[in-house]
Amino acid sequence: MRELTFREALNEALDEELARDPNVFLMGEEVGAYDGAYKVSRGLLKKYGPKRVIDSPISELGFVGLGVGAAMMGLRPVIEVMTWNFALLALDQIANTAAKMRYMSGGALSCPITIRGPNGAAHSLAAQHSQWFEPQYAYYPGLKVIVPGTPADAKGLLKSAIRDPDPCIFMESELLYPTKGLVPEGEYLVPIGKADIKREGKDCTVVAWGRALGIALEGAEMLAKEGIDCEVVDLRTIRPLDEETLVQSVRKTGACVILEEGWPYFNAGAQISDIVQRACFDILDSPVIRVTGADVPMPYSKALEKLARASAESVVAGVKVALNVRS
């Protein structure tokens, strides 16, 4: 293992899958000559040529639909959306076509597409470029929604997504791209739908995914200094959701805090909370606590933006509420 950035880990996954399977191609805005808007596809056009790495026009509905149609015909398209904010324009092809074609055709069709790109806020990009979309896609039966939080998971899950026979929504993060971690070399697959305990602990379960994982771990370290021992469960996949690992952890610790960066209403945390309270009602000593972003469009000003975002401090506060500990 060597240390790679999240961005390099994704690049390596794409590189390996392009090399492995001639049916894999990468298409999206700026993925080729520009090396990717966020440089995830750096060097791939040069290595694989314009048949395999294709610059698309700015037509999200059109090129996502192209990918869905090509996947229906047995290819393995990887469609990059420059950010998930722009994929709203393609939602019809994802929710109405990709997610439903297998069911509507009675199993005659399938759609092995991977649609990927950065999700969530970076810094000072204001409301239209700072949104978390995972609950929206997790709502649709037929889709799988993958949100890795470490470079190793990014590599292993992207490779699994590309090989998966069903449509996969793969959500990255601009803020994670430069972060580093140990990543296995060569063939490394992380199964879709398996959570991972990133920090073991006995007092309280903190559930997170994607970039929120780092925030949760940071909060857990702060709490450790106060003698509170958190277990951090990284869901990694929102749909399918690894209920077993989640419930086992909460049954062990007896308390649950869910950290999500997006808005509170109808976010994934609401579903997770429902699962936890039903499975762990007998052992919970306090309600499941949700730590989220503020219920407002993201403001531009740094002064306001930081107030709108979930933080390690808010995790600390949430865990103390769950454990009924006075600050």
Partner: peptide, 18 residues
């Protein structure tokens, strides 16, 4: 969905060419 099969057809034809 009105018109949604048109990008799908683009992808089908794209796959043939590919």
């Amino acid at each position: 969905i009105v018109g949604a099969q048109i990008p799908l057809a683009l992808g089908m034809a794209y796959a043939s060419k590919y």
